[in-house]
Design a protein around this nucleic acid. Structure first.
Lengths: 211, 211
DNA sequence: CAAAATTTTGACCGGTTGGACAAACGTTAG
DNA sequence: CTAACGTTTGTCCAACCGGTCAAAATTTTG
């Protein structure tokens, strides 16, 4: 029986070149969107000719699809790690930090994902309604448990997760706007640490003055 | 002297048709991005032929530019209203609510803007570094005043503004993902009110349990 | 080394897209 | 009514784009 996912036998060159193409495509797709990117651009960025690229990926969509599949795994990893062991507030704090680190270290991946969602998720809708939904519901239940135990304040756990996604990914997706408003980053991790400190305070204590 | 912005004399038909085109273009651009949209699509959506559309806007870019210029005014209006009169916490709460209402009522505008920023803001960078930056800095100072007066907790006011933008616009920009995770909205304003309640609690009190 | 298999390239194709243009059509004011 | 002006349409074009193909160049294997 052929499930359509049998192991593809690849030569050394195929493996290397495919990686090269995916790296180039990530760069191009994440800044121009799927329709805004051309095979020529990707081929250029990968240092090869268009027909050569098409020898490794037969269609433009195949590149994008491969990219998205890999993306989702890395992307959801932090949420998967959110677990019942340890102190809930610490657990949430480090989830936020991990997500913020991903926005800093993998901004292209974040933008690629944002692009896809913005356009109505035409290519990954099934994954959103399947894998993603299941995972989020599962973690929402974990959070609900913490609320019932009085470990964190009672709120809507789904919207809590959304707000963590929104605030952290904002620094990757809206990077140019953040830069434009704050001015050039004066070296180091200053910007990142500012954001981390702010988000920690926001999610833990909110804005009401103490006392 | 010609400043390049002298009043364009327009006939009744020109005014009407231009509005029609802009409305159609908003729909098309916001779901497909600039490069992903074709003049034909916009012309179709506006109920006219492509050459006819090009009679009113000579280039595809002109439509987009006009759209973006109008957008920024509506978009920044809520922030402009943030003012020193009244209680700071109330002021912030209603800013958040206004932004959330805009995400609900003008999702296409939000997505158009997000698309532009995602692609590096090639067409509105000057506005971000000028008008937007000035406004944000001004309001950051207002917020700083509140902090000095002990009316709200001390944090970074810029990141506070970013987090309000991020969390509210998320409901417009990532709408399909929100829908996919939460399932179909069971009528009414349920979803919106849930989000409003959650954000209010987050920004005011954070997640630490009371007491 | 030589045959076989893999990789790379240049030339090409059909469809799409942004935009030009002149001719036809409609409207309005004298 | 008619001339002037504004609007609409069909036709056309050059550039671009995704993808094919056969042949050439290269690498792998026996």
């Amino acid at each position: 029986m052929n499930t359509g996912t049998e192991a593809p036998r690849r030569t050394r060159i195929q493996q290397e070149k495919r990686e090269l193409i995916l790296e180039a495509a990530l760069e191009v797709f994440s800044t121009n969107g799927f329709r805004g990117s051309t095979i020529d651009q990707i081929a250029d960025a990968a240092g090869m000719s268009k027909p050569n690229l098409l020898y490794y990926f037969r269609r433009k969509e195949d590149i994008h699809e491969t990219l998205m599949q890999r993306l989702l795994d890395t992307w959801l990893a932090p949420l998967k790690e959110l677990d019942d062991i340890g102190d809930p507030l610490t657990e949430l704090r480090s989830y936020i930090r991990r997500k913020l680190e991903m926005a800093r270290d993998f901004p292209r991946e974040s933008r690629l994902f944002a692009n896809e969602i913005l356009q109505g998720a035409p290519r990954i809708m099934p994954l959103l309604e399947g894998e993603l939904k299941t995972l989020v519901n599962e973690k929402a239940n974990v959070i609900k448990g913490w609320m019932r135990a009085g470990k964190i304040a009672r709120t809507d756990p789904w919207h809590l997760i959304f707000s963590i996604w929104a605030t952290t990914q904002h620094y990757a997706d809206f990077d140019v706007q953040v830069r434009a408003v704050l001015g050039p980053d004066r070296g180091g991790d200053g910007r990142f640490e500012d954001a981390a400190r702010f988000l920690e305070q926001l999610f833990l204590d909110g804005l009401k003055p103490k006392g």
